[in-house]
Design a protein around this nucleic acid. Structure first.
Lengths: 123, 123
DNA sequence: CTGGATCCCTGGGGATACTG
DNA sequence: CAGTATCCCCAGGGATCCAG
């Protein structure tokens, strides 16, 4: 491992990878960020906030997040139906780092795009 | 937007999504985390550290990261060949939030798995 | 309004073999 | 050692229609 063979990163990164699986999904990330801001968002709200997501995929995403204990689902037996989602306590702890990543993306979007153009132009 | 209609999250999340595209890739995340720790890692080192990645995918991932100005590639014309990768300054700024996400994943992996089992058991 | 059910298709990414 | 080149597969996810 070159000159830094002392760190047992192998195992660490591997375990990271396991639960990073949920985070590698852009929809999951966006949903968590959205839910972390507003509290108690409805399905329709999320569809609007997370632009470009289809109902099917949003449903699946929410179910997976619920399954992983990150999101709570409250369904009210009304007509018309109303379903509200919110982050669990665990989900809230995820929101912070996720949000920072989102902030990074916003802050450096231009730089990335510029670098990309420069790279492409060089070919 | 329920009761919190004042935040213009729509645009914010959307722009986030654009450059979050690179981050939604689990391989990208793992590579950035790995490169942020060791300085100047070789291709083979990365293959080892990021377990499970194929040579092809690692190559593509590194190329994309280089394209986005996050990674620098140094190839030495030797026999046998030696190629060293390192984070750019921009890449370093990404490493911090990425690392936090990785830390979150490590810290809460068990909780997530437990929640998942509980959820599945309930069906 | 909130989703479940279907169909379908693209591309991420794995396996394998080869080259400079 | 560090890739390239192919082949190939399947799951993520879009579109559409239906239902409680």
């Amino acid at each position: 491992m070159s000159q830094n063979s002392e760190w047992s990163a192998s195992a660490a990164i591997w375990s990271t990878r396991t639960s990073l699986a949920r985070l590698d999904n852009k929809w999951s990330a966006l949903v968590v960020i959205a839910l972390g801001r507003g509290s108690g968002l409805r399905f329709g709200d999320l569809r609007t906030l997370v632009e470009g997501v289809s109902a099917k995929v949003l449903t699946e995403t929410l179910r997976d997040l619920e399954r992983d204990g990150l999101v709570l689902r409250h369904a009210y037996a009304e007509v018309p139906p109303r379903v509200v989602y919110e982050l669990t306590e665990l989900g809230c702890t995820l929101h912070a780092p996720m949000r920072e990543l989102g902030d990074w993306a916003e802050r450096h979007a231009e730089e990335v795009l510029a670098a990309r153009e420069a790279f492409d132009a060089a070919r």
